[in-house]
Amino acid sequence: MPKMVNVSCSFTYEVAPVFVLMELEVLRSLRQLVGWTEGDGIFCPGGSTSNMYAMNLARYRLFPKVKSQGLWALPRLAIFTSPESHYSVKKGAAFLGFGTDNVILVKVDERGHMIPEDLDEQIELLKSQGVVPLLVSCTAGTTVQGAFDPLDGIADVCDKHKLWMHVDAAWGGSVLFSKQHRHLMKGVHRADSVAWNPHKMLVAGLQCSALLLKDTTNLLKRCHSSNASYLFQQDKFYDVNLDVGDKSVQCSRKVDCLKLWLMWKAVGSCGLEERVDKAFILVRYLVNQMKKRDGFHLLSEPEFVNVCFWFVPPSLRGREGNADYQNKLANVAPTIKERMMKQGTLMVGYQPLGDMVNFFRVTVFSPLVSHKDMDFFLDEIQRLGSDL
């Protein structure tokens, strides 16, 4: 029997010409939202991988011999990020051989925004120790509080020290569709790379994760290509730059761009903008309802669609000064979550942060959610926690 080719994957133009062109078009459209008229990109298997690609590209751009000589070709390199950044930054540093000790945590303010002045000081300090600063990984929409790092201020520092500026916008990137909320990512056009997950806020099918690059020198291909002669012959009759498989680490990939392309065609940019704006409206409704009820205490006013809060049961109200108050409050969220899961009504995450004990963290973004759902959410927490 003849060998069958899987045309639902993307590695050479001749195998999947429509999907190759579709990916290029979707990436071009996403780059335009970032503010770039030119550039490159690729769809990756998740935002964590996108962040790792950025680290690898930054290293190759500064030290191209690393591709052939490996870590022997490198001095000690440092990556800068905030303690509020996604765990994939440290995971990527370990995987790529930087080492987690070389991920330098920059101070944040009380809302979780990276402080550019501290970034500058940390870079100067590492330089004085003979370390080579490589990359700053900013976050646009932190996992917990939904904070957006001040990209313009960070870009100034990166320009000063000639560092690669990466923006992990896996969670928050979709605000770029919204005229009302895109200001949260002011300065993103100054970055070298952006990670963006449409499968998060836009609710594209999992997985749908894009890495966008300002680079126009074919850096992705130069960094990752292996020039396999059975796939990437250079004497084909078409433009061999359309053989995008040599840009990626994995070569053949699922056509994740199709999920976003179909949705974008179906609802248009205006429909995606409405989806983003609706999420903010629902969050404002949820927060306003919390303020009308006893026992709900916000960590801070939400900047994005992350709502972090404590529920203080009646037995603890007015007893904030007691020595055991924090320990008892720490047990509230886990107990309520256990009850709601066993009863099958809800599943809401909780966590501590710094010196703050367990609090609930809910993210609101589904276009199917309504005010009624928000009311039920609050009612259920009150019902399950009233006797604690």
Score class of each variant (00 low, 15 high):
Gly41Leu: 07
Gly46Phe: 10
Val66Gly: 05
Ala58Asp: 00
Leu74Ser: 09
Trp36Cys: 11
Leu71Val: 13
Tyr53Trp: 09
Leu71Thr: 12
Glu25Thr: 05
Ala54Gln: 12
Gln69Met: 13
Val66Leu: 04
Arg76Thr: 15
Cys44Gly: 02
Asp40Trp: 02
Val34Ser: 05
Asn56His: 10
Trp72Cys: 09
Leu74Met: 12
Arg28Pro: 02
Tyr53Gln: 05
Leu71Asn: 12
Arg59Cys: 13
Asn51Asp: 12
Leu30Asp: 05
Ala54Met: 11
Glu23Gly: 02
Ala58Tyr: 03
Leu33Val: 07
Trp72His: 10
Thr37Gly: 15
Leu27Thr: 03
Glu25Tyr: 04
Pro75Asn: 11
Gly70Gln: 07
Ala73Asn: 12
Pro75Glu: 13
Lys67Trp: 01
Gln69Asn: 08
Ala73Gly: 06
Leu74Asp: 08
Met22Ile: 01
Gln32Ser: 13
Asn51Leu: 14
Thr49Ser: 12
Phe63Ala: 03
Pro45Ile: 00
Trp72Ala: 15
Glu38Gln: 12
Gly47Arg: 09
Ala58Phe: 11
Lys67Gly: 05
Pro75Lys: 12
Ser50Lys: 03
Tyr60Met: 00
Asn56Thr: 11
Lys65Gln: 11
Pro64Phe: 01
Asn56Pro: 00
Ser50Arg: 04
Trp72Thr: 14
Ser50Leu: 04
Arg28Trp: 01
Met55Trp: 02
Thr37Ile: 06
Ser48Met: 06
Leu33Thr: 02
Leu21Glu: 15
Ala58Gln: 03
Pro45His: 02
Ala73Pro: 10
